[in-house]
Amino acid sequence: MYLDRFNLKARVAVVTGGGQGIGLACVEALLEAGAHVYIADSNPKAAAEGQAAMKVKGYVPEVIEMEVTDSKQVDAAAARVMKEKGRIDILVCNAGIARSEAAAEDVTDEHWLNVIDVNLNGLFWCCRAFGRHMLAAGRGSIVNIGSMSGVIVNKPQPQANYNASKAAVHHLTKSLAAEWGARGVRVNAVAPTYINTPLTAFAKTNKPMFDAWIDGTPMARIGEPDEIAAVVMFLASDAASLMTGSIVLADGGYTCW
């Protein structure tokens, strides 16, 4: 009874930024659970490499080249999935950027707008485009990738733009959940700690920063992409059928201190 709730057989999923890192781990988790998965990525090389990595493991995800900041591309991607599969059951909004280490007073307009455009606007375009089809069908699960940075202010790196974008993602998640819950569409978010991905690779050459990250984490380590993907798979599945509007912290205890 309980394990069956994790079964995603015959479901159709789309993962933005799915070519690498957390996104690719989510692709693999959903594939393993039985879903048919599209890797939606603005980087054709990363998408192709991610697809190839999954084929080695016996899976065959499809690829959609899509820039989340272009709402027309997002709408077209949603239309393509509906045309090809006739349904959209799961959306994982993972695409995001950081651009940290700039003091707030030194952040340019371009710098600020770029982070907000990808992390917040792009995420909303995706929720809106794919969510419309879910609402029409009366079913669906959206999982947004937020951050513990939407809950606390990180140190020692200054990143007001990133923190603000992820706090907005969390509140948008709750807002959509409140609007769409009675119509069969659940919307939740995962708020990770520092994860071992290309996004955090810069810290490995900055020992004081990396040490501060570890010292601030009760588990004394950063996370791995599969640890976030496991939470995403749960939220996407019927095992989380009573959950909507939840922001699930997966932070190694970082926000405890």
Rank of each mutant, 00 (worst) to 15 (best):
L8D: 00
V12Q: 05
V14H: 06
T16R: 09
T16S: 12
G17C: 09
G18W: 03
G19W: 07
I22H: 11
A25C: 08
V27I: 10
E32K: 14
A33R: 15
A35I: 03
V37H: 07
V37D: 06
I39F: 08
S42F: 12
S42I: 13
K45R: 14
K45W: 01
A47Q: 11
G50A: 13
G50T: 08
P61Y: 10
E65L: 14
E67K: 13
T69Q: 13
S71W: 06
K72I: 05
Q73K: 13
V74H: 01
V74E: 02
A76G: 02
V81A: 04
V81N: 01
D89C: 09
D89H: 12
I90F: 07
I90A: 07
N94M: 08
A95D: 03
A95N: 06
S100C: 13
E101L: 13
T108D: 12
E110H: 13
H111P: 10
I116C: 11
D117C: 13
G122W: 04
G122Q: 09
W125I: 00
F130Y: 14
L135T: 07
G140E: 01
S141N: 12
N144R: 08
I145A: 03
G146A: 15
S147Y: 03
M148E: 05
V151K: 15
I152G: 00
Q157F: 08
Q159P: 01
N161V: 08
N163M: 09
H170T: 06
H170S: 06
T173W: 07
S175M: 11
E179R: 15
V187Q: 10
N188I: 03
N188H: 09
Y194C: 00
T200A: 15
T205M: 07
K207S: 04
A212C: 03
P218S: 03
M219V: 05
I222K: 04
E224W: 11
E227A: 13
E227R: 12
I228T: 08
A229D: 04
M233R: 15
F234Q: 12
L235S: 08
L242T: 09
M243P: 05
S246H: 15
L249D: 02
A250G: 06
G253M: 05
G253C: 06
G253W: 03
Y254E: 00
